[in-house]
Design a protein around this nucleic acid. Structure first.
Lengths: 225, 225
DNA sequence: CCATTGCCCCTAACGGTGTTAGGGGCTCAC
DNA sequence: GTGAGCCCCTAACACCGTTAGGGGCAATGG
């Protein structure tokens, strides 16, 4: 009655997740409240607790919904290009939805979609020749890097949205702060201010990614690198 | 008058940061409120806004206070061992204070302590032979990895503290969930459940660290690796 | 000596939060 | 028809960040 009222048959946990996704996109993670999600599905806040134990569980649903659009790259070519593509896609996924990295960050309990992704990654790593232990560690390493990177990458975006400015303005302000430091005690920060705040995040992501893939390749016998 | 009342001369921003640090240690980030920090310094909540624009600014102070204990490793030996030590120390720092990774995560505006650390790291990277652009990227990469790693590492700890259980119990529960998956559709997860949930996080951190350092070393001319 | 200024804290309140208790219809199965 | 269950409601609790406005108290300047 309140919203578009697509809930004729009844409320699903899936519908809740979709509503939470819309609220997240509109108001960000800080603005995502039980009351707003309830309103989004045309219901009062207390009713959510019939479908969900608490907000934490709703965030688990949201977390999985974020991963629903994840796709695996084609399973062709070198393992390196496959995993490069994997990480680029994962970053893009987290980056495209507002505050997605913050939602995912530090969340225990991977949802079904993430579990499927992990399974696929482990399979490819083992096929590439990594030992069981190395495959597990490599998957963890790549996930930690992508999450950590996007989390830092997304924070100027969030700050820019909070203030009225653009992301570029926020980054430039940081660069100016570096440049304004006393040159005699912080010579490197002053000199590298431009490099440190290079707005081409895609390139910076790729840099780290290539270093990690290089490091992983060194674990394989030379003929499988 | 309420607390230990060490505030005879007057309230400092530094004192606020220390109080926030104590509240964080006691109640975690979710339990850190303006009212509690105020009570910790023997004052009412509204009074904080004389010293601080809003909670966000208090968190910036807290962020810098967390970095106050950071120490730089000795500047001797190979750059690789220096940066290995750097990252181990940084992880230890984040891991030792409750929810430290969550406080630091995605925070724009590095505080003075972090700025000093970045300066030192950039200096060592350039001395090791990295180009300006590579040094900036390498520093960013290492920071993203450590933060991302500790963020994931700390989440079972937080979950264990929220429930009454130990960290080991939480991790074991995750391992059981992996093992309980249908073996025909998730063969790798089932087979690698133990590897994926290996509780030796120190070793897992070191694994990723060595891969990254390997990758970075490949950027240097062979005689400087 | 008085007045003014600026610092620092207070009380009170606003609108919002997550969550629980308890109740009431509505639809099935028996 | 009647009970059981599902699903939503209202009302309330304790807490949150933040603001408005006021009061005391020290130092400063006339």
């Amino acid at each position: 009655m309140t919203a578009d009222g697509a809930a004729s048959p009844g409320l699903t946990r899936e519908a809740l997740a979709q509503a939470a996704l819309r609220v997240l996109e509109r108001d960000g993670l800080a603005g995502l409240s039980m009351r707003k999600v309830a309103a989004e599905v045309g219901v009062k806040a207390a009713s959510l607790y019939w479908h969900v134990r608490n907000k934490e569980e709703l965030l688990d649903l949201l977390n999985d919904a974020l991963m629903a659009d994840a796709v695996a790259p084609p399973r062709t070519g070198h393992w390196r290009t496959q995993f490069r593509e994997y990480c680029l896609l994962h970053r893009r996924l987290l980056l495209d939805k507002r505050d997605a990295a913050k939602v995912v960050a530090g969340r225990l309990a991977p949802g079904p979609h993430l579990i499927a992704l992990m399974e696929d990654q482990l399979d490819r790593l083992r096929e590439a020749g990594f030992s069981d232990a190395d495959a597990a560690m490599a998957a963890y390493l790549l996930a930690a890097y992508v999450q950590g990177f996007v989390l830092q990458e997304q924070s100027p975006i969030a700050a820019a949205e909070a203030a009225g400015s653009s992301r570029r303005e926020v980054v430039d302000a940081v660069a100016d702060r570096f440049r304004a430091l006393p040159r005699d005690t912080y010579p490197n920060l002053v000199a590298l201010a431009d490099d440190l705040t290079d707005p081409d995040m895609e390139a910076r992501f790729e840099f780290g990614l290539q270093r990690i893939l290089d490091g992983l390749a060194a674990l394989l016998p030379p003929d499988r690198r």
